[in-house]
Design a protein around this nucleic acid. Structure first.
Ligand code: FES
Ligand code: FES
Lengths: 161, 161
DNA sequence: CATAAAGTTTACCATTTTACTTAAGTTTAG
DNA sequence: CTAAACTTAAGTAAAATGGTAAACTTTATG
């Protein structure tokens, strides 16, 4: 029931890059140092973020990492699922692999709802919002902070489970 | 990020007992058969539910299991935490074991909120509500179903994280 | 073109968790 | 006293977790 270190490190990495205002790519080693990530662990996570299409990587001397999309288009849910695969609070909530009990299981709806509530928050939170929070005034535009999200959740559209 | 089998089986067990209208204790073996739980696994889970104060057990011939509290007083959250310990979506949300990054971590609030949203659902759902749903008309009284909860969540009081 | 700086790939590793199974108790009704 | 029921304590195979390490490829630069 807990986020893995890999995913936590992935979030820190993405946030670190989003906070970088220069447009030169960042080195994995520097990110690791700034974000308290074991460097040799991070260079294992970086390729996963790349295959997920979240970052571009430049090899060779002078290379590094930069974002593929705008920070406002990258949600926490997206990052977590890039590393851990689809989020599912219970086995029976994964894709169509239904357990035999699903048809008349009274608990199923509850988990589905709990998951929707949780995903709403992770989906409404973008890197842009998080950057704004830690560097107020450095960027303009409408972004959402965690506390904004609290009031906003209830207007969210239905998310598929 | 997923419920363990132990906790899932614990929920099924509690629900099975709550659905039992006779007041004679139920045998672990019978519960296991009805709820598709490996019997030898369940007899390992039962003592945990007992130490958590959720059930009473009667030993010896004719013995079995019955609930300690009324089904309306037992929430899903309570059952899950009896088996898995405190629910925490991220390490830094466990008790006071704060990571060194917490003071200026912009992500922390987000996880805290996501967790509150999820816990609200698990806390608002009681065994009584679930029983009502699968056996309509068999019990009276005000209980809450999963779909009721959906509209109710937003009025919930603040939960500590 | 040699070299160092960067990411890539693959493999390895110890520890813990998970989901069980097994077996030897202990208690109690009948 | 004996069978029925819960209790306790091991044991176990497989997977996940959180890393580490080494060999490889690409590219800028001198
Ligand atoms: S089938 Fe999904 S919770 Fe029971
Ligand atoms: S300290 Fe809790 S998420 Fe960063």
């Amino acid at each position: 029931m807990q986020l893995t270190r890999r995913a936590e490190y992935a979030i820190r990495t993405m946030l670190d890059i989003a906070s970088n205002l220069d447009d030169q790519p960042l080195m994995s080693k520097e990110i690791a140092a700034r974000q308290d990530i074991p460097p040799n662990f991070l260079i294992q996570i970086v390729p996963e973020l790349r295959s997920a299409g979240l970052i571009h990587t430049v090899r060779g001397s002078g290379g590094g990492i930069y974002l593929t999309k705008k920070p406002s288009e990258i949600s926490l849910r997206y990052i977590v699922e890039a590393i851990e695969g689809p989020i599912a609070l219970n086995q029976c909530l994964i894709g169509e692999a239904s357990c035999s009990r699903k048809p008349n299981c009274p608990i199923h709806e509850v988990w589905a709802l709990a998951q929707r509530q949780m995903l709403s928050v992770l989906e409404a939170t973008t890197l842009a919002g998080l950057v704004d929070q830690s560097q107020p005034g450095k960027r303009a535009g409408k972004t959402s902070t965690a506390t904004d999200v609290a009031g906003k959740i209830n207007n969210e559209v239905e998310l598929e489970v």
